[in-house]
Design a protein around this nucleic acid. Sequence first.
RNA 1: GGCUGGAUGGCAGAAUGGCUAUGCAGCGGAUUGCAAAUCCGUGGAUCUCGGUUCGACUCCGGGUCCAGCCUCCA
Length: 464
Amino acid sequence: MLQIYNSLSGKKEQFIPIEPGKVKMYVCGMTVYDYCHIGHARVLVVFDVINRYLRKLYGDENVTYVRNITDIDDKIIARAIENGEDIGTLTQRFIEAMHEDADALGVMRPDIEPRATEHMDNIINMIQTLIDKGMAYQGDNGDVYYQVSKFKDYGKLSKKNLEDLQSGSRVEVEQAKRDPADFVLWKMAKPGEPFWESPWGQGRPGWHIECSAMSRHCLGEHFDIHGGGLDLKFPHHENEIAQSEGCSGHKFVNYWIHNGFVRVDDEKMSKSLGNFFIIRDVLKNYAPEVIRYFILNSHYRSPLNYSDENLDRAKASLSTLYQSLLDIEPIDVPLDENSDYAKRFFQAMGDDFNTPKAISVLFDMSHELNRLKNSDKAQAQELAAQIKHLAHILGLLENDPQAFLQSGAGEGGLSDDEINDLIAQRAQAKADKNWAESDRIRDVLVAADILLEDTPEGTRWRRK
RNA sequence: GGCUGGAUGGCAGAAUGGCUAUGCAGCGGAUUGCAAAUCCGUGGAUCUCGGUUCGACUCCGGGUCCAGCCUCCA
């Protein structure tokens, strides 16, 4: 049982795949001209969890997850010129960087990762079909436009209508367009710009048609789920619908999923506002799973406020979970899907991917594990295994507990050796019952954000 | 101006027509040389005004405030 909030209807709907037992999902990926920021991290992680959960329900081999790469675009061209760099070199560099960031965050690779430049034939064919059907035209400037008025359902996703769009238009209208709402499918190359040959002249595709062509090629004319950030709903996804349905004459996508924004000080994090944080910079101070936890601890459709305080809180919460897994070796058993915990977890996930609620189940398990550790070791090991199985669906608790708790050595901080050295000195002071000295050493460590725990087996430490 | 979504305890963040969210922080107790971790217990919230109802935070209507889209954006 899976309910998904469908942006198209504005309601939660039961998920029913087109082909029973198989799921096809397409998510709009990055335009590769710069490093990914936390807003991108949210899309990556949110749809990674959706992908993981779908695979859990339907089986790995029955889910096809496509996430595209936009590797030709005005911004890419501008950046390449700015850098005095070849476009292919630029995009390749940032594709690699994106993969590094995604891998670091524990994001599973999509099954297919199409690149716009590798689908020029499909793009051109699709544009030609639209022209043949009278839904697109070539303007006086040579550019090819989609004629929005020819698609009666235009606006059905974003709940806009053409009159509103026209009256609210904020940009100067391109003369070659018949209607201000028309959008470009094929753009003529200016001198010096990269181009592909086409029936309309040398040029490059518009952004929207790329996704229509790539999704059709990878998943067919009609598939189950299409996702992306909320900012793509209009015009990008609206235009995709117009193109794909205009071309095929039938429905394009059954379920549209949009994740909410990451905000900074109650404002959307974005390139244009300049208030963005790059994933790789944040990773210098926080473990990857802390970022994942931070993202998954709120519902994917809610706004998410980025701040150090919130990341610190995420780290403290995640540490609590890891703390319970310390000193307990999970046994090798499969997930028990009939346990109350698993049922609650799946119920939460099945209700429009309610990850915060699913995480709360993990905490309930963690508390029971702490109790069990002192009473029933065997049961504790079993429960630890179950926690890890469920957390794995969220991509959490994948590290060794001690390694996680001791991670985060920042620049200028104490090294592990220095810490162990101080702990040894303190152990001697403790043995001598020199409490003043042992407390002094502990204060030194605390000042360096190193927390100590004395256990019957000796002193343990972790980084705050 | 048009459209969309939101407003929950100190903070973060779920759920729900009557029944403990959860986490971080706080408080009391157990434990500890003292701490930490852990366990047991505990205080604290539903923007505002009306309406429907035996009962609403939850449903309906008005208001206020916030965010987003209408241009590139995850």
